[in-house]
């Protein structure tokens, strides 16, 4: 889990704190997006919204940790990144995998894909920011 503040390169006045929960392969796409140049890292501050990115397969054993992480960042928006976090994805029939994090937390944005492309992450961040700030 990494917490870093990012701003859109196209509009550096708005920044967002990104809490990335790296649970499986989708996290590579999140990392690719964070380092793509579309987002720039800005100094830590309390201002602006916070996004928790759940990227990867959430097994039943991991559910308490995911809930704990989300509770540790009150007011944060939850992004369900990829098919696994959204619905179980390719593991939809597997007994130890949870069938979507929206069963136990409120999700602000769903990103489709297995994995979603890095630009989908940027798009999701933009959409979350525009809702919060406008």
């Amino acid at each position: 889990m990494a917490v870093t503040r990012y701003a859109l390169t196209s509009d550096p006045s708005v920044s967002v704190e990104v809490v990335s929960a790296s649970l499986a392969c989708c996290t590579l796409e999140v990392q690719a997006a964070l380092n793509s140049g579309a987002l720039i890292q800005v100094p830590e501050s309390d201002a602006g919204p916070s996004v928790i990115v759940i990227a990867g397969t959430v097994t039943d054993a991991l559910v308490p940790s995911v809930i704990e992480l989300i509770h540790a960042h009150p007011g944060s928006k939850v992004m369900s990144f990829g098919a696994c976090a959204t619905s179980g994805g390719p593991y939809w029939d597997s007994p130890p995998v949870s069938k979507g994090i929206d069963q136990f937390v409120e999700v602000a944005a769903y990103v489709a894909g297995c994995p979603p492309r890095p630009d989908a992450f940027i798009q999701a961040i933009q959409e979350l920011l525009s809702k919060r700030v406008s």
């Binding site: 619905s87 769903y110 990103v111 489709a112 894909g113 979603p116 630009d119 989908a120 959409e127």
Partner: peptide, 11 residues
């Protein structure tokens, strides 16, 4: 398109 939605049903 990259599909980003606020509702799971919209997918």
């Amino acid at each position: 398109r990259a599909l980003v939605t606020t509702n799971r049903e919209d997918m």
